[in-house]
Write a protein that binds this DNA or RNA. Structure first.
Lengths: 466, 466
DNA sequence: TGATTTGTGACTTGACATTTC
DNA sequence: AGAAATGTCAAGTCACAAATC
């Protein structure tokens, strides 16, 4: 019997007792999930304490623990010992970012594309590839992890980014997102915890949720994740891995200096974490920015899954990424790769390979850098006060907003006025901070004119609201 | 305190008590996994009953339950209420089937390829595609689930297989295996159960293990899965789905007659299971075999994920498969698709599309059918006594072996003598049956001569052993 | 600082179902 | 046919750790 009446102590969530079925914990978890996804419980809402809700429902409090846990693994809620359980920032909606069809109704500064203007250079190479005598050889099941000469080209490409590895430890997959999914499936189990930046790649948040991998937000500064903060989380929780984008973090554009990489590597080594290093933007840093240093893979080759996508640097539609891993991870990685893809189209990989070998990939990179530089300059014209501490060639920018806005209405608000941008809450790995940013893509408009138009629109909207 | 001495009742598995750490169940699960994967516990071994082992270790018996369960979810062991817990048939090794590089050292009748001789027709079309004015449009992030005209071609193709659907319910992914992974990720949770044939697609077993989805073997006859047996499992356990390959089951080559499909559909409907229909081989059945009927998707459109790969029918290396699903599954499927792939290379899809629209895909299918017919005839020459109840145009055959063989030595035994084939144990979804088969691929040798040589070798080996 | 609130998670209890004998 | 063996699973107990006040 409940020894207390809750009529006078309104709980933030009062599940309908009559709807409960056995097993109770599952039924309860479903009710909670329903109420969150249908908007009855707003993000950030503090749920009733386990014991209190248990009392109200007249069940044991660990039955609530179990129900909460099921939702926690799905990323719907999170608990803080001693403090309470809260609805997660991105519980109600999918933060998945994808290219949408109807993008001619607005200017898209949301999705980060890759200055697709350079794709005509790719078509040239495609035309060369189809004349190759071995074209037919690219159409069968052979070499699921990559044809040897494709792997050599991959190493060739990654060498310019600072990677030294052997062909046996390289595999070719279908893009960075595909690589992330494969790495998570291969090396982590449901319930495992991975440390991430407070703001991190939205699609990584989504795939982690799907695989029931828990993300642990770690504080950072203008140089990226804070080593002491990671250390703290390690001692607090049983972490299994850490996800980093040292060459240019998405969405914050932070490029990690060599010193920070070394400090973090020490912590990672000490706690034997698996580092997933998404180095998609290395081509904008290596050999260009003085203090860039090297990928963290070189510091921790035995613990790192290094992912190098060619989607941003060379061609997005061909879906080719390279993974580099240590011998210890090889079998698991190859198995997961096989389970997910069987193989990646050798035709697509051949095109990327020829782009690399012919030097045209470098030409494309040069063009993209140029485009990125102009785009960033244009952004600075409109928003001169925005801190320039981030990566100077980033394909997107991170725009602080002074005022406090409702997150969903915010994106909609801009969209309604003709420009798509993403609010920082979409990238939140943990709870709300109160800060507000917009991620503004610079690489998705087909022309500089359109980018300019988009930025002008954005500035006008922001000015009007202040 | 243990109230019994086990000195006199030798248990099949005696974990070292001194190695146990807290938490006990996890430590125990690790020990068990280690002993299984390192071969100390052979497949089929009956493990000590939970209560007995608990008594021996002086722990509560549900601690053993938990440890066993963790291993069960990984597919290492399986429990039968009232009977015991056993080491799974394929616990120790990966049954993943892939194309290996060194296949010139033996004749490969193991991996099922797709008569790659037809790929020169594909190269012709590739050359046409690169001349298209819209080539550049294929190289960006647009239309992650497939370009509209690619979806129309997909529907066009699937219509000949008996599918009627609308473009909004079609998505294009990177091959059938990719489609399976996406469907499992989108619609099932770790711990869910899916009914499968006793012998089923080996890579489906692997991906299920990886995702902690439990397979429930269901009895079948020469027409496929038995409806009463499925019904029985439904009432026994909480099933969430069923996986079927009605047009030609791999590895058994069974083609399900229409009557059986209808009977199974009733059960599936009644119990609200999700049907995953892998219809890869429909192109060998629809319009060719009288009593073939239609895909089960047409019987149960609201509950079916229909997968149609073009790898076997058109071209294996391009990695294109179509998925058809009901509106109710759409959001989850698109999200999982996006999380796993972002998109499938539009260039590859365009090639397949042009193959379909130009009629060359049909020409390829005609050639493959011809090749399959000849290959099957050749097989019949060597093994005239083998039942011909299976699919007459199957790309592989299912060869019963009279004698009892050790499973691992068996595949090795053939391989050592120059021919790669797969033993039936590789396809076992549940426990050993005592029966022995070989799956013999007919579509992987580059020529009929080599197939003949392989079959001859195989026959000789089998004869010598009898 | 120390008591209280709150979440976490391992282990225990007990009901129940099936299989075997 | 019924008792015993055996696995499954939800729910309960309990120790503990962190945050709050």
């Amino acid at each position: 019997m409940p020894f207390n009446s809750f009529e006078h102590y309104p709980m933030s969530w009062k599940p309908d007792k009559t709807q409960l079925q056995r097993p109770l914990y599952r039924s309860l978890a479903q009710l909670l999930e329903h109420d969150i996804t249908h908007g009855f419980l707003a993000p950030g809402t503090k749920l009733p304490p386990q014991r209190e809700l248990a009392d109200y429902l007249d069940v044991n409090f660990t039955t609530i623990t179990r129900a909460y846990k099921q939702c926690e693994l799905k990323g719907l809620i999170y608990g803080v010992t001693g403090n309470g359980t809260f609805v997660a920032a991105n519980a109600a909606r999918s933060v998945t970012i994808s290219k949408e069809r109807d993008s001619n109704r607005y200017i898209d500064l949301g999705f980060v594309a890759s200055f697709e203007q350079t794709n005509d250079l790719v078509t040239e190479v495609i035309k060369d590839v189809v004349e190759k005598s071995y074209l037919e050889e690219l159409l069968n099941y052979n070499d699921p992890s990559g044809i040897p000469h494709h792997k050599l080209a991959a190493l060739n490409w990654m060498q310019t980014l600072g990677i030294n590895a052997s062909p046996e430890h390289v595999a070719i997959v279908s893009g960075a997102q595909n690589a992330l999914t494969i790495a998570l499936l291969a090396l982590f189990e449901p319930g495992n915890r991975i440390a991430v930046d407070l703001y991190t790649y939205a699609n990584f948040i989504e795939v982690s949720k799907m695989l029931r991998i828990r993300l642990v937000p770690v504080l950072g500064d203008e140089c990226g994740m804070l080593p002491e903060s990671l250390e703290e989380q390690c001692s607090l929780l049983n972490l299994h891995g850490v996800f980093l984008m040292p060459s240019c973090a998405n969405p914050t554009t932070i490029m990690m200096p060599e010193k920070r990489k070394v400090e973090l590597a020490q912590i990672i080594q000490k706690h034997r974490l698996i580092l997933i290093e998404d180095d998609t933007h290395a081509f904008l840093s290596a050999g260009i920015i003085d203090h860039y240093g090297q990928p963290m893979y070189q510091l921790l080759p035995e613990q790192t899954i290094y992912i190098c996508s060619t989607a941003k640097s060379i061609c997005s539609g061909l879906r080719v990424a390279y993974i580099v891993f240590h011998e210890a991870f090889k079998n698991k990685m190859l198995k997961a790769m096989y389970n997910v893809n069987v193989k990646t189209s050798s035709l697509d990989v051949e095109i990327v390979t020829q782009l690399i070998l012919s030097g045209k990939a470098n030409a494309i990179v040069a063009m993209k850098k140029e485009l990125a530089q102009t785009a960033n300059k244009t952004f600075n014209e409109f928003f001169p006060d925005v801190s320039k501490t981030g990566h100077p060639l980033s394909f997107f920018r991170w725009l602080p907003m002074a005022r406090d806005v409702d997150e969903t209405s915010s994106e909609k608000f801009f969209l309604k006025q003709g420009v798509r941008v993403f609010h920082s809450n979409r990238f939140l790995s943990g709870n709300h901070t109160g800060d507000n940013f917009l991620r503004v893509a610079l690489s998705s408009t087909p022309s500089l004119q359109e980018l300019r138009a988009g930025l002008e629109m954005l500035k006008k909207i922001l000015d009007e609201c202040n």
